[in-house]
Design a protein around this nucleic acid. Structure first.
Lengths: 233, 233
DNA sequence: CGCTGTCTTGATGTGAGTCAAATCTCGTGG
DNA sequence: CCACGAGATTTGACTCACATCAAGACAGCG
């Protein structure tokens, strides 16, 4: 799997303001003392496997990444979805194993941060430290929200609130890329492919939403979006 | 609700070694510059409500605490169970609202740590900082594990793996206190009271486990414990 | 253009929710 | 110390949402 690599231009990084270096001055960014590489991964490529020994952490410049846990019996749960600005693999700072398998859902560009380098930065720089703490908090919140979905809602409610929040997250209005297969939606929401397919097909028939090669659009006629949201409660 | 309070004797604290002050020298502990109170809560008492403004964080000296999230429609999800040595309310360090409602499941003794005091300690002391980061990581892992349970397993499997891990957690062999009502087991595992009751009744009939006023014991005859674990996969 | 994998749809089974009632527990006050 | 009542637990009968099994229809790609 030949992968494009390049030294990152941190100074002009478009996501610097949301990265863990957000608190850095230009000066400090310039002084980042270790190499940061931008690496391209294509859909389906694995960043690392659950249980293996952590070498690196990543920041997403573009693309969508899933973190999954797999049971011995083959059942799979997507634990978190990550997009631009999100970081992953940082459990390597605290633990000797990765907690999930990380896989790109589409063409993704990420910054590769070697953990051995990162540990030092993290220790020396309170900004980074705090930034990382914030990310953990955020991840926990996200995970808890998903937990509540799975624990308290039924199939159509889960799907509705996921779709709606996914579309909102990316600005709403118009087409939103949704690089998840039915299978993956199922693995995220604790359902089966068939159930997801049926519900989505139903909504398309009812004109609640449209779908077009990996992108969806909620029908702007308000009451239809409401239909979805209201299910959510 | 009259509640017993007392200034904590941090030096001789039985859980100091697992607390966020674990890395402190005796000297440092002696110098903790703010008052730490030990407070007793009785079963059902609320530490704080989701969405309210954080005033304090807590460390459990004894007892069991549940963190719950409630939906507008009345459905409730227990997000995490906490026991001796665990901390909660620490999202107050990062956010302006508590993320859950915290409730004592039985008589509980906790150390009350004022957040305004804690912020300073946290900033000044890398040990504490790291300890807290560790707790976040731990909480995330725990939550993810529960998420996987809810997303991939069926009723009896969820209940089995919860019971087994709960018993293991507290040393196994013999009776283990289980201060959860059927309702609460249901709210933890995304089930209904009736389902929990039925499964448990069934296991008791089959002699997989015994129950006696808020305590359970897995039947030591190995194959029966195995029954439970094997369901778990 | 055929193949492979994804998606849709139908038929059927069943796990678990719902509703309702009987029974058990335990704390309270007489 | 016992009786009472509120809440917790159990149990049964019934329903329904979702999983499972099994074909087709439909891409996207070599």
């Amino acid at each position: 799997m030949p992968r494009k690599e390049a030294i990152s231009d941190c100074i002009n990084c478009p996501i610097r303001s949301v990265s863990i270096f957000a608190g850095f001055s230009l000066e400090e960014v310039r002084n980042i003392s270790f190499p940061v590489h931008t690496v391209a991964y294509s859909a389906g490529e694995v960043f690392y496997h659950e249980g293996t020994s952590p070498q690196a952490a990543f920041t997403i410049k573009s693309g969508v990444v899933k973190l999954v846990k797999e049971l011995s019996n083959g059942r799979t749960q997507i634990v978190r979805l990550l997009t631009t600005g999100d970081i992953f693999g940082f459990e390597g700072l605290m633990d000797t194993r990765y907690h999930h398998t990380a896989i790109a859902l589409n063409e993704a560009h990420v910054c590769h941060l070697s953990l051995s380098d990162l540990i030092g930065v993290c220790r020396d720089n309170p900004h980074v430290n705090e930034a990382i703490l914030h990310r953990w908090a955020q991840a926990l919140k996200q995970t808890e929200d998903l937990l509540v979905e799975l624990g308290t809602k039924k199939a159509n409610e889960r799907l509705a609130s996921f779709i709606v929040s996914w579309c909102e997250h990316s600005g709403m209005e118009g087409w939103t890329a949704l690089p998840l297969t039915r299978q993956e939606l199922a693995e995220l929401l604790g359902l089966t492919v068939e159930t997801v397919s049926r519900i989505l097909a139903d909504w398309k028939r009812k004109n609640y939403l449209e779908e077009k090669q990996g992108a969806i659009r909620l029908n702007p006629k308000k009451d239809l979006v409401q239909q979805l949201v209201k299910i959510t409660t």
